[in-house]
Amino acid sequence: MNAVVLANVVSTVAFGVALGVVLVAPSRKTGLVSPTSKTFLALAMGLYLFVGISNLLEHTGVIAFFDRFEDYAELLFLPLFAYFVHSMAETRRFEGIARDQRALRQSHELTMSIVETSPAGIMVVDPAGRVTFANDRARSVLRLADDPDSVWLRTPGWTVRPAGIPDVEEHPDLRIVASGVAVSDVPIEVIWPDGRLTRLAVSVAPLADDAEVLGGSVVAFLETGSGFRE
């Protein structure tokens, strides 16, 4: 047996083993090697198994018939192998996206749990002072309700003004806390249609987008007292 034939034997057996290893591995839609990656790799290894067998038959003098197809096999191997590696990279990328989505969902659920169980009222207010989100406590204290016709929560008709300032303008929304300035424990008064008055201590954190444009404010408050309008 000359060296070329020996090399062909090794090549044929090795590519045969490679193809066998790929084919017997279980296919899973999720995981490191997708069925698509596996198919491309199996085809690539299969092509070179064919090349090995063809070389072996040719160099042992059995038959040279398959030699004419070897070039096609060698040419096809390259794109198939490239597709296999590309498919592996895509699988890894999708895996990363799915992992990020899971982490984001868990983080969102944690944040919502904290917000919903907080004893303080927490709201998100747009720059015009309209409430776009409120936790249960805020909904309860300010009697906010969902409005099926808009994205804002409906108020029962109260007005709001800064506390302790005489003859100040009252507003039917929360614009006095939505100016984009961060404040802490600022007293305000909510005046109800029947003349009742609820005092709140309000803290505000402005929400800015990537372009530093005010997108609204997070407003947290504690109820500090109640009374009647003078």
């Binding site: 060296a3 490679a18 490191l32 790799l41």
Partner: peptide, 27 residues
């Protein structure tokens, strides 16, 4: 010609080990 066939044999062996390692990692 000999180098060509030896290179193919080496490639085959390395592919076989690589496929085995990849499929083991997938399992």
């Amino acid at each position: 010609d000999l180098l060509e066939h030896v290179s193919l044999a080496v490639a085959g062996v390395l592919f076989a080990i690589g496929c085995h390692r990849l499929m083991s990692a997938a399992r």
